[in-house]
Nucleic acid binder design. Structure first.
Lengths: 229, 229, 229, 229
DNA sequence: AATGAATGAGCCTTCATTCAT
DNA sequence: GATGAATGAAGGCTCATTCAT
C-alpha cells in the first residue's frame, strides 16, 4: 500500500519514534502499536527489525546515550589539565544538557529518570557506560577540590549532591516554578549551570576539613552543633 | 471458600498490599491480581472497595502522604522561632526520612519519584498538599539565609538544589555506592542529613550577594569567570 | 444506617423500582445493583426477598400484567351481549391503553414488546394469562364480524392484523411521527382507538367472502356510524 | 494453531456468525466469545477486525439492512407509474419478506424488532436509511389511495397501521398460531401479503372521508379484484 | 525485506449471588 | 428481617508476538 521505503529507513524511523514514545510514556506504557504507527511502519516491524519490544528499548537506550555522550561529553572539551573548578562546571553543564535536551535526538534525560525510579533491565546496560564514568569523574573532581585529607565518605556525598542537583531537572515538565518556565532553554541552562556550579563549590568548601576555620565557616559550624546537640 | 475476615480487614489489607506493589512496580506494572493475591483477597475486591485500580492508587497516595506528613512533619517539631539553619536541617532530615522510609508505612518516596518521572493524574492530587508546602518552606528558609537583597531567582535555585539533593535518594536500591549500602538506615540518614545541611549552607553562602568578598570566595569567582569567558 | 422500613416496604419498593428499570433497559441490561439502589435497598435484598433476579423479573411480570388486566380489562366493561363492533372497539382501546400506559403501574407494554422480540422464560408465564385470552377474544369478535362462512385462516389473519396494529405502539418513544408526539396521551389514545377500530372494521369487511357486495357493506357502515356516534 | 485461513475469511466469518448470534440473543446477551467460536476465530479477532463488539454490531446492521434493501426493494421492481394499489401490495410483500427472511443473509427483521423494543445507538444509524424511506413511501401510497381531501393525521395513522401489521411478524418464533406454522415460508408469505393488502385497502377505504359512498368504493373493489386475480 | 492477518495470554471490570452477623 | 462484606465466574478488550506470504 504505502510506498516502500528503501533500505533501512523503516528501522531508523522506528528508533526515532520509539525514543519519543518511550520518553513520553515510559517502557510499560508505550505500546508497540503506537510506536509503529508513529513510525508509519507495520505492527510486525518491531519484531522483524529488533526481535522484541524490549530489545528495541535497549537499542534506543544505547543510541540515546551514545548520542548524549557524543554531544555532551562530560569533559566539555576541556583537557585533563584544566582546573578542577573548570572541570566541575563543564561536567555540570554537560549533565544538565543531557537532562534538558529534548530535541529529536535527546530524550536521554527523561528515560534515565524513569529508569532510575522504576528500573528495567536496560538500566544495567548503561550503568557501566554512562553512570559509572559520571560518578567517577565527579568523584575525582570533588576529591581534587576537597583535598586529600577529606574522608572518602565526604567525597562520595558531595559527588552525589552535585549529581542529584542536576538529575532533578529531568522530571517531567510542569515541575519548574513559573518564574523559570518563561526563560528559553539556553538561558535557563546557562543560569542553572552557573548556579549549581557556585552552589556546589560553596558546598564542597563548607564540608571539607577545615585546617583553619574562616569566620563564617565557624558560624555555620556553630549553628550545626547547636542543632545536633 | 477462604475463611471470611471480619470487619473491613480486606480493605486495609488491600491498601497495604497495594502500597507495597505499587511502590515496587509502579502503577502500570502492578496488576490488580497481584495486589489482591498479596492481600489474600478476591480479584473483585479492589472494585468492591475502591471502585477501580486507579482509585485504589489514589487512595494509596493519599494515605501514604498523609502518613509521611504525620510521621515526618517538615518542621521536625521545631517552633517557628527556630533559626533558619535549624529549620533547614530539620526540613532536610524530614524530607530524607520520607524518601528513605520503606517500612510497611512509607513507600511514599518511591512512589513520588516514579510519579515525577512518569506522572499519573494522582500526582496532581498531592502536589498541593505535599509538594507546594515543601517548596514554600524551603523558599522561606533560603530567603532568610540568603538575605533580603538576593535576587528571587537565586532563592528559587537554591531551594531546588536542596530539594533535589534529597529527592535523589528515592531512587530504587542499588544506586548508592557500595560503601554507603553497608550502613544501617538510621546512621546513613543522620550522615546524609548532616552532609546535605552543611553542603547546602555552604552553597547558599556562596551564591548570595557578597557585600565584602572574602579572599577564597574571590578565587571561586575567578575560576568561574575564567570558565565562562 | 438508613432508617429501617417497616414490614414489607422494601419488597414493594423493589418491585416498583424493578418494573421501572426492567421496562427501561430490558431484563439483561437492568442490573440488580441499579434496581436496589433505585429502591434504596441493600444489594442483597433482591435475593433475600425474591430468590434471584430472574424470579424478581417474573414477579414484576405477574404484577404488571395483573394490573394491566385489572385496570384495562379486555371487555372494557361491556357485557357479553354488546355488539361485536362495540366489543372490538373496547378491546382495541384496552390493548392500546396497556401499551401506552407508562404510569408507575403500567410498564407492561414496554416489557411485553421486549419479551416478544427477545424472549425470556418469563414470556411463557404470561402467555396463557394475557396473550391467549386476547387472541381468543379477538378471534371471536372477528369471527362474528366476518360471518360463519369465512375460512378460519381469514379469521386468524384478521385477528393478527388488529393485534399487531396495537402492539406496535409499545415501541420505545421517538418512534411516533412528530405530528403525533405533540398530542397528550389521552387524546392520542382516543384518536388511535377510533382509527384502528374503523380501519379494522373496513379491513375485515374487505377480506370476508362477498356473496353480494352491496347490502351488508352498507350495514357495516351503519354499525360503524352507530358505534362512533 | 488452528490452520490459518487465507485472505479476510475470518472477517466475513465473524460478520456471518455475529449476524446469527445477535439475531438470536440480542446485542447484550450475545458474547464476543460465542461469536468468535461460532466463527472459529480467536477471541481477539473481533477487536482486530472491528475495534469493538459495538462496532461489529453496527457493521452487522449496515450489512444486513443493505442486503434487505437490495434483495427486497420497497418498490418490488415496480415502476413509479404503477397504481397505488400495486405499489402498496409490493411494499407490503417486501416488508414481510424482510421480516420473515431468516436465511443466512437476512436476520434483519429480528434485529430491528429487538432494537425497536430496546434500542441501541445502532438504531439511529438505520433509521434514515431504512425506516424513513419506508415511512415516506407508505405515506405517499396511502395519500394517493385516500385522496387529497383526507386529513394528514388519517394518512399517518393508516401508514402506521399497515407498517405495524407487517412488523409484528418479526417477533420470535412460536408466536404464530399452530395453524400457520405448518405452512411453508413462501406460501405463508404470499397469503399474508394478500391478506394485509386486502385488509389495508379495506381499512383505508373505511377511514377516508366519504363524500358519496358508492362510486369509488366500487372502483376500489375492482382494483382489488384485478390485483388479486 | 517487509507486511497484513491472526493469536493467546492476561488485565480490569461487572455482576448476580452468598455468607456471617 | 435485613444488611454490609465478599466472592467467583465471565466478559470485553489490549497488546506483544507469530505466521504465511
Amino acid at each position: 500500500m504505502a510506498e516502500r521505503r528503501d533500505g533501512l529507513a523503516t528501522k531508523s524511523h522506528l528508533l526515532a519514534a520509539a525514543r519519543r514514545v518511550f520518553a513520553e510514556k515510559g517502557y510499560r506504557d508505550a505500546t508497540s502499536g503506537e510506536i509503529c504507527s508513529a513510525a508509519r511502519a507495520n505492527a510486525a516491524s518491531i519484531n522483524y527489525h529488533f526481535g522484541s519490544k524490549e530489545k528495541l528499548y535497549a537499542e534506543v537506550w544505547k543510541e540515546a546515550f551514545q548520542e548524549a555522550i557524543d554531544r555532551y561529553p562530560l569533559d566539555g572539551g576541556l583537557g585533563a589539565d584544566a582546573s578542577a573548578e573548570a572541570r566541575l562546571k563543564a561536567t555540570v553543564q554537560s549533565l544538565l544538557r543531557r537532562m534538558l535536551d529534548s530535541s529529536s535526538l535527546g530524550y536521554a534525560g527523561q528515560i534515565v529518570l524513569m529508569e532510575l525510579a522504576n528500573p528495567t533491565e536496560a538500566l544495567e546496560l548503561v550503568k557501566q557506560d554512562v553512570i559509572e564514568p559520571l560518578r567517577r569523574r565527579m568523584h575525582a573532581i570533588v576529591r581534587e577540590l576537597v583535598g586529600p585529607k577529606a574522608a572518602e565518605e565526604q567525597v562520595v556525598f558531595c559527588a552525589i549532591s552535585i549529581i542529584h542537583q542536576c538529575l532533578g531537572f529531568g522530571f517531567k515538565k510542569g515541575k519548574l516554578p513559573a518564574m523559570l518556565e518563561s526563560l528559553d532553554k539556553e538561558t535557563l541552562l546557562v543560569s542553572l549551570t552557573e548556579h549549581i556550579y557556585r552552589f556546589s563549590v560553596g558546598g564542597i568548601r563548607a564540608v571539607r576539613p577545615q585546617v583553619n576555620a574562616a569566620p563564617h565557616v565557624r558560624s555555620g559550624e556553630c549553628v550545626f552543633r547547636a542543632e545536633v546537640g
